[in-house]
């Protein structure tokens, strides 16, 4: 009996993670797409320079020459759509990673049933009442329109969600038998957090990370759509969509549709990964 109590689900599950990924088709599919897209943006030979316009070929519809057409300045939409991944995807991943690390640290810190941690969560509730899009835009603009500010905005939007998730999962775990057993054996609170609780919230946290990455792609696109955090003529999906927005009314759909489709597919890929990881985490519970 005592052996059963002391078995750590955490150990078992963390070693089972790769198997879960291997078996999980959506996760593999989504990740493969993101990696391929990223690789293509860095290494694939592009038909035209993404930052060199052709003034003789402006606002051309898609053709054999320009697969996705050209925009009002004569930029090749295909080259720019691919090249934009170079900036947008790593930025989203950086923001997600930073949110993940901070979210885990703060989330575990408030994952006690004490009075002050309840208050911290209440504070987060209040925070949720703020118009985050506007605050995010304000932060990026007022701190000088740099890429780091975009990461900061993403962190600001995502950390509360991570904290909330990790707290609720960890609180449930704390009640469980094996944590009680570890505590009875004299494990320090920090050790319990690190060795017992963290491994067990990892699965669901990874799923949330993928959702956060998807969300970050949209936030980055929204910010650069507003001209925030970008430096033209460097390509970015949001910026491209913004440049095409005026053309949409006169029917030049391709300038918006192709980068828009890139956003959509990338976000869907991250969501696919999230769904798969979520299902895996649910199944192992």
């Amino acid at each position: 009996m005592s052996e059963r109590v002391l078995t750590q689900p955490g150990r078992r599950r963390s070693s089972a993670m790769p198997a879960i990924v291997r078996e999980n088709a959506p996760v593999v599919l989504g990740l493969a797409f993101i990696v391929l897209f990223l690789a293509a943006s860095f290494f694939a030979p592009l038909p035209y320079g993404p930052t060199t316009p052709d003034p003789l070929a402006t606002s051309q519809p898609p053709s054999a020459l320009h697969w996705f057409g050209t925009d009002a300045n004569g930029f090749d939409v295909f080259s720019r759509t691919i090249a934009a991944a170079q900036r947008d995807i790593p930025l989203a991943l950086a923001g997600t990673l930073a949110s993940l690390v901070l979210g885990i640290v703060f989330g575990l810190l408030v994952s006690t049933k004490s009075r002050w941690s309840e208050r911290a969560i209440r504070g987060l509730d209040v925070f949720q009442a703020f118009p985050l899009v506007i605050i995010g835009t304000a932060i990026v603009t007022l701190t000088g329109n740099r890429l780091e500010s975009v990461v900061l905005a993403i962190v600001l939007l995502n950390v509360p969600r991570f904290m909330r998730l990790i707290r609720s999962e960890a609180l449930a775990l704390r009640e469980s038998r094996f944590i009680e057993a570890a505590r009875a054996l004299g494990a320090s609170p920090l050790r319990i957090l690190w060795r017992h609780i963290l491994p067990n919230v990892m699965g669901i946290t990874l799923a949330q990370s993928s959702i956060a990455a998807a969300h970050s792609i949209i936030v980055i696109a929204a910010l650069s759509f507003l001209g925030v955090g970008v430096s033209p003529p460097d390509p970015s999906w949001g910026l491209m969509i913004q440049e095409g927005a005026r053309q949409m009314i006169v029917g030049d759909w391709w300038i918006v549709v192709f980068p828009g489709f890139a956003v959509l597919v990338t976000v869907a890929a991250f969501n696919l990964v999230a769904d798969g990881l979520q299902a895996a985490a649910d199944a192992s519970q």
Binding site: A214, I218, A221, A222, F225, I241, G244, A245, M248, V256, V257, G260, V263, L264, V265, V267, A268, N271
Partner: peptide, 11 residues
């Protein structure tokens, strides 16, 4: 869930 609102507006 994957569609940014501004993209859908334009479409």
């Amino acid at each position: 869930q994957s569609v940014p609102d501004f993209l859908l507006s334009l479409l």
